[in-house]
């Protein structure tokens, strides 16, 4: 009996405080989107979850803004905001992004993105990382507060990085001021003709 107790004690000593917990709620979308996630949009959009968006048989989520009428701009956003006391956090996501525009008119563009927004305690956005795919005339550019990561291709891909490391790409964001992180599935189309 003493040997067993001693053995357990050694295990506790070796792994005292490592707790891997997902700060996001319902990040795998196996629960309805009303669990953990919020929505906002303009125009006609589709925000849903289904088991057919990939082949693994589990649920995935989609934020879809299609061009459904001649002049309708708009966006769809499915998002969740979490408090973070530190930024030594690993972000991971399986995603597929699309942004397609066929008119070749320079003021029309479309983009689909996973957006990681860094907020201060007052919910002001300090900066963003955008994993995205877009049409050629999308005006998004890198800056001190925006870091763009182009989707590898039109398929499903895994994106994973440490937030502390990612913030080194955003010189305009002080990591000490980051109090919240907002994760968004975001799609938008803009017309000007």
């Amino acid at each position: 009996m003493r040997r067993i107790l001693g053995f357990v004690g050694v295990l506790v000593f070796l792994f005292p405080a490592i707790i891997y917990s997902n700060l996001l709620t319902n990040g795998d979308f196996e629960q309805p989107l009303t669990t953990g996630w919020l929505q906002e949009h303009s125009g006609t959009v589709t925000i849903d979850r289904a088991i057919g968006y990939d082949t693994d048989g589990n649920y995935e989520a989609c934020a879809n803004k299609d061009h459904v009428s001649g002049f309708e701009d708009g966006y769809a956003r499915l998002y969740q905001v979490v408090d973070v006391s530190i930024t030594n956090v690993t972000f991971s996501c399986d995603a597929k992004c699309e942004g397609y525009e066929s008119t070749n008119y320079s003021k029309n563009w479309a983009a689909g993105a996973i957006i990681i927004s860094y907020l201060n305690a007052s919910n002001s956005t300090l900066g963003e990382t955008r994993i995205y795919s877009c049409s050629p005339d999308c005006p998004w550019v890198n800056s001190a507060t925006v870091h763009l990561i182009t989707a590898s291709n039109a398929n499903w891909n895994n994106y994973s990085f440490n937030i502390n490391d990612e913030l080194t790409n955003l010189s305009g964001v002080d990591p000490l001021n980051v109090a919240k992180i907002k994760i968004s599935l975001y799609s938008a189309v803009t017309h000007d003709y």
């Binding site: 990040g27 795998d28 979308f29 968006y53 990939d54 693994d56 589990n58 649920y59 995935e60 989520a61 989609c62 934020a63 879809n64 803004k65 299609d66 061009h67 991971s92 996501c93 399986d94 995603a95 597929k96 992004c97 699309e98 942004g99 397609y100 525009e101 066929s102 008119t103 029309n108 479309a110 983009a111 689909g112 993105a113 996973i114 877009c134 049409s135 499903w156 599935l185 975001y186 799609s187 938008a188 189309v189 017309h191």
Partner: peptide, 9 residues
């Protein structure tokens, strides 16, 4: 014109 984003996990 369309924009979509799918995500999981």
């Amino acid at each position: 014109m369309r924009a979509k984003v799918f995500a999981d996990d």
